[in-house]
């Protein structure tokens, strides 16, 4: 690489290197939308970790004076978003519900990424025949509408949280599989892989030490988008009554329960849905930021954002 610096573009190359030294939080700070999204996701992460311990009692505590209470401060700060038909605090239930909603989606996405990534590396690196079988299986899963697949499987198995996670993970696995395989097919032809092979490294060593680190950032970026869509699927299933079952609290389920009181207490269905929307929107915004930030070719768009606008 150093031999190239003698070319006339050396000044530019240097500038690029200096700009790349910018830490990620500065990049994040420059993109205000991504910044808000990251803050919101952090808040949700707190709800996920300590929500049920902190407010678990409040969320199930009945308060007959606050039955279908209108949003406002009359019944105390916990009822600021109103109360449900049993007088339970909607705010507390939203915070407690974050754990189920988010952890199901996170686990499903994580399993999908691990399984899809591993299978994708195998399909891309090991023999043609194995690759064929894996890809056809992915075709079967992917060629069918995911929600429908989930409905059918949850019908045959029981609608338990574990089954729900497995179904959601299965429907998302092909995406990781395809991306990983495509990347592996390209990376395995590069010189450093040949060099490692020439030095006598085994397949497993090459996959783990040379190929996986290159594929990982791509998979992480897909994960953030996917997290949003899995969360929507989970909420949809819970809404239909074949996802997470009461008395567990999830946002999708809360929308379904609030639907019966639409004319009397609109807030019961409205706020949980808004939470879903904000969470998925944040994940989507953050992922498009990540896509730019992790892509060396595109990264300048974030860094020179301001300057470019001044030029216009």
């Amino acid at each position: 690489m150093t031999t190239v610096t003698t070319t006339p573009t050396s000044g530019e190359a240097e500038a690029v290197i200096i700009r790349r030294a910018q830490p990620w939080w500065q990049l994040l700070w420059r993109d205000k939308f991504a910044c808000v999204a990251a803050v919101w996701l952090t808040v949700l992460a707190f709800c996920l970790i300590i929500g049920p311990e902190l407010l678990g009692d409040t969320a199930t505590q009945l308060n007959l004076r606050a039955r279908n209470a209108v949003p406002g401060l009359e019944n105390g700060p916990m009822w600021i978003l109103g109360g449900d038909p049993l007088g339970r605090s909607l705010l507390a239930r939203l915070i407690v519900g974050a754990r189920n909603t988010i952890s199901v989606a996170l686990t499903a996405v994580f399993i999908a990424m691990t399984v899809g990534g591993t299978l994708g590396m195998v399909a891309g690196y090991v023999g043609k025949w194995v690759s064929h079988v894996i890809m056809r299986l992915a075709d079967v899963v992917q060629s069918f509408p995911s929600l429908l697949l989930a409905v059918i499987v949850l019908y045959m198995l029981e609608p338990r949280v574990g089954n729900l996670i497995i179904v959601l993970a299965t429907t998302r696995t092909p995406i990781y599989l395809r991306v990983t395989r495509a990347e592996v097919l390209e990376i395995r032809e590069r010189v450093f892989v040949d060099a490692s092979r020439a030095l006598g490294s085994g397949r497993f060593h090459i996959l783990r030490n040379h190929i996986a680190p290159i594929v990982a950032p791509t998979l992480l970026t897909i994960m953030t988008v996917d997290f949003a869509s899995v969360m929507l699927s989970e909420s949809g299933l819970s809404f239909l009554g074949i996802g997470i079952q009461p008395p567990a609290i999830t946002w999708g389920l809360m929308v379904a329960q609030g639907r019966n009181y639409l004319a009397q207490a609109w807030w019961l269905a409205f706020f949980p849905g808004l939470m879903i929307m904000f969470a998925t929107l944040s994940a989507n915004i953050l992922s498009s930021w990540l896509r730019l930030a992790t892509d060396p070719v595109q990264r300048w768009r974030l860094e020179t954002h301001k300057k470019e606008e001044d030029d216009k």
Binding site: S235, G236, A256, L262, G273, M277, N284, S288
Partner: peptide, 17 residues
Amino acid sequence: LSTASAPDFWVAITGIL
């Protein structure tokens, strides 16, 4: 981005509302 993130069942219910 917003329309891609909106839960459809919720939009439907809010629309009815």
